[in-house]
C-alpha cells in the first residue's frame, strides 16, 4: 500500500512529460485554484468546529449519551461504546480520542475494544464530510442523504458489536 502514491505520481509525471505538458506552468495553475477554494470554506469550518466544541464542553453530548445508551443497549451496543457511536459522525479526531480512551480503560484485545475498532473503521464522519464537501456550494437539500448515511452507519455499528461477539 505504501508504494501506491509514489507509483501513481511517477506514472502521472512521466505520462504528462511524454504528452509534452508544461509541468511547471500546469502545476502552478492547479495550485492557484486551491487558494480561493480554501478561503471560501473557512467560515463554514469555523462555524462547524465551534458547534462541536460547544456541544462537547456544555455537556449536551454527555446528556445525549446518557439518554440514548439504554436504547442503544437494546440493539446490542454496550453503554461503554455509546459515546463513540455518537461522536463519530461529528469528529474524526474526537472519536479517535474516545477510541484510545476505550483501549486504555478496557485493554486493547477486549471485546469492547475490538467492537470499538470495527465501529471506528466502518463508520464515517457524516457531518464533517457534509460540511466540507458542500461548504459554500449550491446544493442545499442534504437532509435525505444525511439521514441515509447516518442510518447506514448506525446499522454497521450494531452489526460491529454483533459480529465481534462471534469472531
Amino acid at each position: 500500500m505504501k508504494y501506491f502514491i509514489p507509483i501513481l505520481f511517477l506514472v502521472i509525471f512521466i505520462y504528462s512529460s511524454v504528452k509534452k505538458v508544461k509541468p511547471y506552468d500546469s502545476f502552478v495553475e492547479g495550485v492557484k485554484s486551491a487558494v480561493p477554494f480554501t478561503v471560501s470554506i473557512f467560515p463554514y469550518l469555523v462555524s462547524i468546529f465551534i458547534l462541536c466544541e460547544l456541544f462537547e464542553i456544555s455537556g449536551i453530548s454527555k446528556i445525549l449519551t446518557d439518554l440514548l445508551s439504554p436504547l442503544f443497549n437494546l440493539l446490542g451496543i454496550p453503554k461503554e461504546l455509546t459515546k463513540l457511536v455518537l461522536i463519530k459522525p461529528f469528529s474524526g479526531s474526537g472519536s479517535l480520542a474516545v477510541l484510545t480512551e476505550i483501549f486504555n480503560t478496557y485493554g486493547v484485545d477486549s471485546y469492547l475494544s475490538r467492537s470499538a475498532c470495527v465501529i471506528y473503521g466502518s463508520s464515517e464522519t457524516v457531518f464533517y464530510v457534509a460540511s466540507v464537501y458542500f461548504a459554500g456550494s449550491k446544493t442545499k437539500n442534504l437532509t435525505k442523504p444525511i439521514i441515509i448515511s447516518l442510518f447506514a452507519n448506525f446499522v454497521s455499528c450494531v452489526f460491529a458489536c454483533f459480529i465481534c461477539k462471534i469472531i
Binding site: I12, S16, K19, S26, G30
Partner: peptide
C-alpha cells in the same frame, strides 16, 4: 490548503495529459 494545493497541482498535470 496544503493537501489541496498538492493534489490540484498533480490533477492539473493529469488533466492536461488526458490521463
Amino acid at each position: 490548503l496544503v493537501v489541496y494545493s498538492v493534489w490540484l497541482g498533480v490533477f492539473k498535470l493529469m488533466g492536461k495529459s488526458r490521463l
